[in-house]
Design a protein around this nucleic acid. Structure first.
Length: 497
RNA sequence: CGGGGCGUAGCGCAGCCCGGUAGCGCGUCUGGUUUGGGACCAGAAGGUCCCGGGUUCAAAUCCCGGCGCCCCGACCA
């Protein structure tokens, strides 16, 4: 019996399980560069599906794509005080433009040519606020130029101490939206709107329930007025920040002199927003749905939504089942379903099942001689459940099944999250909860940074968000669950990635 | 940057204590038989044993020094 590499069970070691799922699903691989990963075709396809869905939504809300340089003059970072402080510890610098042969061999055969040292080093973008708003200053003169609604899809670099596939790598892919508005109210509406776009995407495409809300001062983006975020609960009961949307106020506008003339002839600074989601979402996808057999991928983001596995004994049967398999495939392709027919002769059907299950294919169709004779196929769902289905009207049956799977994953994830959430916690309950399995703890919060720091110190839990109204508890707590002083807001705490 | 684990065939590992021709499983290739939940038989290819020094007649193995990767913590999306 040929047993392939095993996936470490979640219950045994969650981190190992996570790595195993990614490797077995061929989403990504470690690269020769420390802290960087290679996104493999299967993983990149997931990203492309995410990009397509999000990009359509960005366009539908009036944004256009552009591309700004990877390199940013070092002095630009320094123009906004909080911003530079936030990123100073993790930027990569380009200091030379040439290599020089040393005459030595091996790794020391070349060195940076001292004669090519840059007068001002370039920063490899950790985010693009500075260079984008430098350009906005050129492009915006009048209130007629506003709002300016841009987005860019790109890679960025943040030099992290400790990295994890998709969740935190030195280089990663993301999108960053950057907008400029005439008024604070418009900027605020934009930041809120994009938070809503992300929520829709994460719930409806990723089948990942999220809590939206406001970040505290200590958790907000360096340089922002306010940061809104989406937080999801992973299967190990740790929270994952799945996206952020910032109201930048006029901080960058002032730093880069982005001004416009009002209708009345006055001169005003613009109000900016920025918002982003990254390949980190793929990590969230994995940790939300997958199981000990590998990746579980919601149909809307599955590179392969349906795999057809033909089963035969004789050459004659092979011809028969492949003929039906081809027809089924053509029918599903016509219906817009992403389908693969796995006609490989070198593997037994069972081996194929394991392989496609590890890759997260939501629905499998088995076609054997008995099915051909009965005018049916056997369907097997990745999340469980086998049933024969008539060939007649198959495309519609399959489409319906995929919708059911999509909805079922979201519901299951939502129920799991609720099962690991407690509301109206007391300090004692909070301590026990965070020491135990953990999850989302809702409680009153006095708003003081001192309380926040103390809680983090003692429990490793942080305020994930001050939740938006639709996520708040029916009874809003009146006192801080930690210090007992009057509460200024309900907060959601969790240990986080 | 601290703690733990590990570097031997594409992948997973054994061998190391006690130095003596580098092995096993999976995968790959060839041929044949197979195919409704990880097929079997026969044959074959595949190695700077992480790197550099040292000890020795002889080092994957012993000694010294590096490097790299994974996991856990501090920092962060």
């Amino acid at each position: 019996m040929a047993q392939a590499k095993k996936i470490t069970p979640r219950a045994q070691d969650f981190s190992e399980w996570y790595n195993d799922v990614i490797m077995q699903a061929e989403l990504a691989d470690y690269s020769p560069v420390r802290g960087c990963m290679v996104i493999r075709p299967h993983g990149y396809h997931v990203w492309e599906l995410m990009q397509r869905a999000l990009d359509d939504m960005f366009k539908a809300t009036g944004h256009r794509n552009a591309y700004f340089p990877l390199f940013i003059p070092m002095s630009f970072l320094a123009k906004e005080a909080e911003h530079v402080e936030g990123f100073a510890k993790e930027v990569a610098l380009v200091t030379h433009t040439r290599l020089k042969a040393t005459g030595k061999t091996g790794a020391q055969a070349v060195m940076p040519d001292p004669a090519s040292a840059l007068e001002e080093p370039l920063v490899v973008r950790p985010t693009s606020e500075t260079i984008i708003y430098a350009m906005f200053a050129k492009w915006i003169q009048s209130y007629r130029d506003l709002p300016l609604l841009l987005n860019q899809w790109c890679n960025i670099v943040r030099w992290e101490f400790r990295t994890r596939l998709f969740l935190r790598t030195t280089e990663f892919l993301w999108q960053e939206g950057h907008t400029a508005h005439a008024t604070e109210a418009e900027a605020e509406a934009e930041a809120r709107q994009m938070l809503g776009v992300y929520r829709t995407f994460q719930e409806q495409w990723m089948a990942m329930p999220v809590i939206t809300g406001l970040k505290t001062e200590s958790e907000k983006f360096a340089g922002a007025l306010r940061t809104y975020a989406l937080e999801a609960l992973m299967q190990d009961n740790k929270a994952l920040q799945a996206g952020t949307s910032h109201n930048l106020g006029q901080n960058f506008a002032k730093a880069f002199t982005v001004q416009y003339q009002t209708a009345a002839g006055g001169l005003e600074y613009v109000w900016n927003t920025s918002w982003g989601v990254s390949t980190r979402m793929i990590g969230g996808l994995v940790m939300t749905h997958s199981d000990d057999n590998g990746l579980v991928c919601p149909p809307r983001l599955a590179p392969v939504q349906v795999v057809i596995v033909p089963i035969w004994k004789s050459e004659e049967e092979r011809g028969q089942v492949l003929e039906v398999g081809d027809k089924v495939k053509a029918e599903l392709v016509k219906a817009g379903i992403r389908v693969e027919l796995d006609a490989r002769d070198s593997l037994k059907p069972g081996a194929k099942y394991f392989e496609w299950e590890a890759k997260g294919v939501p629905l499998r169709l088995e076609i054997g001689p008995r099915d051909v004779a009965a005018g049916q196929v056997m369907t097997a769902r990745r999340a469980g459940g086998k049933a024969p289905v008539k060939l007649d009207g198959l495309a519609r049956t399959v489409a319906t099944a995929l919708d059911e799977v999509q909805a079922g994953l979201f519901k299951a994830a939502q129920e799991r999250r609720e099962a690991h959430s407690i509301r109206g916690v007391t300090k004692q309950q909070f301590l026990e909860f965070m020491k135990g399995v953990g999850g989302f703890a809702y409680g009153g919060f006095c708003g003081s940074a001192a309380c926040e720091a103390e809680i983090k110190q003692e429990t490793a839990a942080t305020v994930r968000v001050l939740p938006d109204p639709e996520f708040r508890s029916p009874e809003v707590p009146k006192t801080c669950m930690w210090c007992g002083k009057p509460s200024v807001a309900e907060a959601v705490w969790a240990q986080a990635y």
